[in-house]
Structure formats: C-alpha cells, structure tokens
Design a binder for these strands. Structure first.
Lengths: 207, 207
DNA sequence: GTCTATATAGGGATAGAC
DNA sequence: GTCTATCCCTATATAGAC
C-alpha cells in the first residue's frame, strides 16, 4: 500500500475518531510512524488531505444515489437503500460533524456537498413518488415533498443528533439502525396496512 | 454598560457571524477597542466566555420551555411557541453550528445541553399529546412520539441545514420562518381539516 | 480596570540532507 | 520517498506598570 493512500486512510480514521479540528498533521504522521515532512511531500496542505478524502466520499455516495437500475418498490428495498446511504455517511462522518465549518473553509467542498445534498433530497422524492404511484404510499403531493425534505435533513444530521443526546459509548451500529428506523417511522403513517406490517417486521429484526 | 457585559455581547455577535472557531480572544478585544489583557481580567479563558454566554442561552430557552401556565390548544399558539423556540436558537446559533465540538471541549456544556435537548423533546411530546386529547391531532401514540422526536431534531439542526443547502446571503428571518413552516408541515397531515385550514392561512401569512 | 509587553505552546508548512 | 531540523505564525494566557 502506497504511503499516499495510507495517509488518506489514517487521516480518515483519526478525523472520525477525534474530530477533524482536533487532529493535526503531526498526529497523522505520528500515528503512521512517518515524519511530518514526508506527509507534506504527498499533500500540499491539511485541507488537501481533506479534499482527497471528500472525493472518495463523493464517489461512493454518488454510486449509491445514482443506482437508476434499481426500482425501489418494496419495503425491503427501501430499508436496504437507507442502510447504504447511512453507511456511507457513517464512514465519512467527520464531514458531517463539522459540516458548516468545512464548507466555509473549503469553497469547492461547499459546492460539491450542496450538490450531493440536493441529489439526496431529489432521490428521496423520486422514491416516495414511485411508492405513491404504486399505491404503497397514501398521501398528497405536498406531504410527499415535505417527507422527502425531512428524510434528507434526518439523514444529514442523525449522527450528530445521536451524539448530542446519547452517551458517548453508545454503539455506532445501533446509532445507524436507529436512524434508519427513525426515517421509516416518519413514512409509516402513510403506508398501506400491508406495507406497514412488513415495516414493523423489519424493525423488530434490526433493533 | 459594564465591560464584562460588553465582552459577552460582542463575543456572541462575532461567534454568530464568523463561527466560534474563527473568532479569537484578540478579535473580540480588537472589536471592542480594549486590550487582550483587559479581556482576560474579566474572563479566565475563552471557554469561560462561551460558558457565560451559554448560561444566558440556558436561562432564555428554559423560560420558553417551562411556560407551564400556557396551554397550547390552538394552531396560533403552536406557531407562536415554535417561533419563540426558533428565535432563541437563532440568537445563540453559534452553539448549534459547532455543537459536537463544543460539547466535547466543555464537559459542563455537554451535560447542560443534553438536558435542554431532552426537555425540548419532552415539551414537543406534551404539546402533541395535548392536541391529540383535544381531538385536533388524529393519530396513534407511536406516531406522536415519532413526531415529537422529529420536531426536536429539526429544531436543533434546521439552521445548519439551511446554511448547508442555501446560498449564504439567504435572509436570516426567512430561514426561521421556513423552519417553523417545515415543522408545521410535518404535523399537518395528522390535523383535522379545520385546523389544517388555519395552518394554511398562517403559512401564507408568514411566507 | 486597563494598558503594554511578553511568555508559552502548538500547528502548518518548508529546506535541504540522505 | 523519507528524514531532521526549523521557520513562521497565530492563539491563549500572564506579568507588571499605570
């Protein structure tokens, strides 16, 4: 494994564990047993490292959001889809933890992240609309739009909310499942009895 | 006005405008045309300033959340109540913008903030339950609990979400109204026709 | 209470040898 | 590619005069 990739990997891990503002370039180098000078041979700045990590994140999340071949018609599909989204978010959670600050500091990141958020919102809307047309979702267009917004907001800040309200040693996996469960409960009231039953089953299975 | 209070006031304004991590004690002193030494005569550290500001915030938000004398029975009451909550949040928005980092850095703040979040959640639940008993809200207990959770999350992160997705010059007042509107739309599907009409009227009035 | 001057520390980043 | 050494800068915080 190349040093450059190891830096990316180590930085991501430390950022997630300690929070990006608390991790210096020296920490990263220390953790890898290389010199700070070596680190700066591979990256021109700390923000450059963050930017490279972001590009990896962007690639992964776009893969998930652009799976146009899959039609989300069942509750299982929905659950699986949400799981994929939340998983990518969790893998790059340091971005979400200091979102506003990072966006202010790195102009490119701001633009790209906004684009991703818009895409998330749109994808949620597409899925909801699809479910509505299939008869699984019983409600008007305005409520569907509102739900899609709400889902995007929740996906974006669920981890922060979890950290804010729960004890710190709260299990990461459980936080994810809770987030998905939370989103599902937002949608549940508008489902047909049949689909809601399936959802309840899935819930007991995962919680 | 005493210097100590002026420091509190100036620091709050700068924190909100520039973000707490971007505001140094020197900036605050500069802005007030006093010396850094003077500032440190009044406060033992930067975190001490933040802590004092937080105490002011805590006082205000508790006043709003503990208004036990008022019964929220009408849509107008609800709207007004949300407006008060969102207004206090906006006034101390720097706390919300770097919530996780501040909680990690200042142990007391973590404990107190968690308490406030729990109180917010509980208050939302109380109001929803009240509306349900009065017949304004037509849904089951689980959905009500879910709604209350959702409202607490939205109130906490709405401003961050707005900043993340909209242009930076987006009007602060509008952001607030949008947040309230957003929360109301979450509740709307479960209201009686009569109350939903009132809500729609309020919406057109404020947006 | 307020100032000037300064201590202290740490982080980002570079130069130059190997 | 990697290291050592170091520079530069900025931030928090203190000492001591006024």
């Amino acid at each position: 494994m190349k040093t450059k990739d190891r830096i990316i990997e180590t930085a991501l891990r430390l950022f997630n564990e300690e929070g990006e503002p608390n991790v210096t370039t020296n920490h990263i180098a220390d953790e890898m047993d290389i010199s700070p000078g070596n680190l700066y041979y591979h990256f021109r700045s700390k923000d450059d490292i963050i930017w490279q990590i972001f590009l990896n994140y962007e690639k992964k999340i776009n893969q998930v959001l652009n799976q146009k071949d899959v039609n989300y018609t069942s509750m299982e599909d929905m659950w699986f889809y949400l799981h994929m989204v939340f998983e990518v978010i969790a893998e790059y959670r340091f971005l979400y933890r200091n979102l506003i600050q990072l966006m202010n500091r790195i102009e490119f990141l701001k633009r790209h992240f906004r684009h991703i958020l818009a895409l998330k919102s749109q994808t949620a809307l597409d899925i909801m609309t699809n479910l509505s047309e299939l008869g699984s979702l019983k409600t008007d267009k305005q409520t569907i739009a509102s739900l899609a917004d709400q889902i995007a907001l929740t996906a974006t800040f669920w981890l922060n909310y979890s950290i804010a309200i729960y004890d710190d040693d709260f299990d990461e996996e459980k936080k994810l499942s809770h987030g998905i469960f939370h989103v599902m409960r937002m949608v549940a009231p508008f489902l047909t009895d049949h689909d809601r039953d399936i959802l309840d089953q899935l819930s007991t299975q995962y919680l």
